[in-house]
């Protein structure tokens, strides 16, 4: 059973590229550009890893992080953001994110971070 990853970003290309990279690595990947729908999906289903953008309309990355921590304490969260301010980084780390990626995302680093968080598929 491959490990399950959910990717949430309102940029469709980020979702698509992440999915492509991680699928090729052997993971099972679901993507969402609507954060509310993603949150719903997280509530229904346990994922091994959540990769989410920080700034999003409606439900933002911090909401996703809080909800995930609450429901599945073992599920790891990786945060992506275009706004890499110190405040958001501190807040995210306090919320126990596994990693914090400023945009632009480098594919190799992403692969490495995913492997470090949940291991090989």
């Amino acid at each position: 059973m491959p490990k399950k990853i959910i990717v949430i970003d309102d940029e469709e290309i980020v979702c698509r590229m992440t999915k492509m990279v991680l699928t090729k690595e052997g993971y099972e990947v679901e993507t969402f550009t609507h954060s509310r729908k993603a949150l719903q999906r997280i509530k229904e289903n346990k994922f091994d890893l959540v990769i989410t953008d920080l700034k999003m309309e409606d439900v933002d990355g911090m909401d996703i992080l809080r909800e995930t921590n609450k429901l599945y304490p073992n599920t790891k969260v990786i945060m992506i953001t275009a706004y890499a301010t110190l405040d958001t980084a501190i807040e995210a780390l306090r919320g126990h994110v596994f990693d914090f990626f400023p945009k632009p995302i480098k594919i190799e680093e992403l692969k490495k971070s995913v492997k470090e968080s949940i291991g090989t598929p």
């Binding site: 940029e11 290309i13 590229m17 492509m20 990279v21 275009a82 945009k103 995302i105 594919i107």
Partner: peptide
């Protein structure tokens, strides 16, 4: 400006990197 341009720039970055990698 940083935010507005940052997103498509990141997309281009990811697309070209993926393109080269695969």
């Amino acid at each position: 400006v940083a935010h507005e341009i940052g997103n498509p720039l990141n997309n281009i970055f990811m697309l070209t990197e993926g393109y080269l990698s695969y």
